[in-house]
Computed example of a mutant assay.
Amino acid sequence: MNLSRRSYALIAALVVGVLTLVYMGTRASEDAAGEGVPWRADDPCMKDAPHPSVWDEKEPRLVTLSHGYSSKSPMGGGDMHFTIGASINVGRNPLVLHTPLARGGVSVRFCAPHGKGLMAEAKGLSPKSVETPAAKDGAIRVTREEPLHFMVELPPSALRNGYSMSDLMNSSPPRSNDAADYPVLVLTVSDPGLDAPLVAVSFKPDPTPTAQALGAPPAVRRQMAARRPG
């Protein structure tokens, strides 16, 4: 069968068009695997985690300061331990707690990024070290100027679904610069001196899909970003 030049041109244009669509789809998939991946709005792992920016200064606030996996030995090697540092802060109203602080009253939970479930969970923990203002007769007075700092250790038995301690620090995809790609720490502290348990979350994801996650062109992404509040 003989084809005219016009037919060859139409076939070539069709092939180029198909290849272009495949390429764009691949790029959109790669983008969706990164910073623009939406979180499930009903993620059960995050159901009771407050937004980090929400705080009534009339009430005490729990803040996560740091967490990581390291050796207790200054030279490295030996047993590895995962520790979490946090503080209890107050606003206008001082808080009086007693030693020992929160014995068996600390819970830790790590949620996988992008709503992929529970990575680690432990309950009934006690602070390993507590840095407080001078305590008198076992009473600790926490003020705006002198918050209470403490550290808790996550036991290896807390890990779920074949995760390792190092997984709790790694992003998905690897080496990401987006906080939404890292596991989320949810820390809860209960103590007789508190009216209600204090809950802190290292990052509260936005469950709304971004333009990048939807594969929108760069110009559209910029327009959507410009419309976002704040």
Score class of each variant (00 low, 15 high):
Glu121Ser: 14
Arg175Asn: 13
Pro173Cys: 12
Asn2Ile: 03
Arg6Phe: 01
Val184Tyr: 00
Val15Glu: 03
Asn93Ser: 11
Glu35Ser: 11
Leu118Gly: 03
Met224Pro: 00
Leu148Ile: 12
Ile140Trp: 04
His51Glu: 14
Pro173Val: 11
Ala179Glu: 12
Ala196Leu: 10
Pro207Tyr: 08
Arg103Trp: 01
Pro155Thr: 05
Ala213Val: 01
Arg221Glu: 15
Glu57Gln: 13
Gly77His: 04
Asp195Glu: 15
Gly104Pro: 06
Leu168Val: 07
Lys58Ala: 14
Asp42Gln: 12
Gly34Pro: 01
Ile84Pro: 05
Ser176Phe: 04
Thr99Asn: 04
Asp31Gln: 14
Ser176Met: 06
Val108Asp: 03
Arg222Trp: 08
Pro217Gln: 08
Gly117Ala: 09
Met165Gln: 08
Pro52Arg: 11
Asn170Ala: 13
Leu65Gly: 13
Ala179Cys: 03
Pro207Met: 10
Lys123Phe: 03
Leu62His: 04
Thr26Asn: 11
Asp43Gln: 09
His67Tyr: 15
Arg6Thr: 10
Pro74Ile: 04
Asp137Ala: 15
Ile88Lys: 05
Leu148Ser: 12
Met119Trp: 00
Gly124Glu: 09
Ser202Met: 12
Leu95Thr: 06
Asn89Gly: 01
Tyr182Ile: 07
Ala200Glu: 07
Ser29Gly: 13
Gly78Tyr: 02
Lys116Ala: 01
Trp39Met: 01
Ser71Leu: 03
His149Ala: 11
Leu187Phe: 12
Thr99Val: 09
Leu198Ala: 07
Arg221Gly: 02
Met169Thr: 09
Pro218Asp: 11
Val186Tyr: 01
Ala86Arg: 01
Gly78Met: 05
Asp206Tyr: 04
Leu10Ala: 14
Arg61Asp: 06
Pro183Gly: 04
Asp137Gln: 13
Cys111Ile: 04
Ser66Val: 09
Tyr8Lys: 09
Glu30His: 12
Arg6His: 05
Pro38Lys: 04
Arg61Asn: 13
Arg103Cys: 00
Pro113Asp: 04
Asp178Cys: 10
Ala122Gly: 10
Met224Lys: 13
